[in-house]
C-alpha cells in the first residue's frame, strides 16, 4: 500500500512538472484572471470591489501558504493520530496474546 501511494504521488508530481518542461516559455497565468480579461475585453465594468486586497504579491503568497499550511497541518495531525492509535491497539492485542500463551504453558 505504501509503495502504491508513493507511485500515485510521483505520478501527480510528474503531471504537475510536465507542463513546465513541455511549454516552458508560457506565462502560466491563472485561468481565473484570463476569464476576467475576456470579460474586461467586452467593456464590462465590475460594480463591486473587494473589501480588502493583499497589499503585495508577498502578502498574497503569505496568505495562500497559510491556507495550505492550515489544511495540511490538520490532515497530517489526523492521519498521525489515527496511525498512532492503531499501532497502540496492535501492541495491546499482541501483549494480551503473549500473556495468554504464557498462561497456556502453566
Amino acid at each position: 500500500m505504501r509503495s502504491r501511494n508513493g507511485m500515485l504521488l510521483l505520478l501527480a508530481a510528474a503531471i504537475t512538472i510536465l507542463p513546465l518542461l513541455v511549454v516552458g516559455n508560457a506565462e502560466f497565468s491563472g485561468s481565473d484572471g484570463q476569464a476576467r480579461d475576456v470579460i474586461d475585453g467586452g467593456g464590462y465594468e465590475p460594480w463591486f470591489e473587494p473589501l480588502w486586497e493583499p497589499p503585495s504579491g508577498e502578502i498574497e503568497s503569505l496568505l495562500f501558504s497559510l491556507q495550505a499550511a492550515l489544511g495540511a497541518g490538520l490532515l497530517g495531525y489526523y492521519i498521525g493520530l489515527r496511525k498512532g492509535r492503531r499501532e497502540e491497539k496492535g501492541r495491546a492485542e499482541r501483549s494480551r496474546g503473549e500473556r495468554a500463551e504464557l498462561h497456556a504453558g502453566d
Binding site: P19, L20, V23, G30
Partner: peptide
C-alpha cells in the same frame, strides 16, 4: 490553495 501549471500554459 495550490495553483498548478497545466499543459495549456496557464495555471
Amino acid at each position: 490553495a495550490l495553483k498548478i501549471p497545466s499543459v495549456t500554459g496557464s495555471c
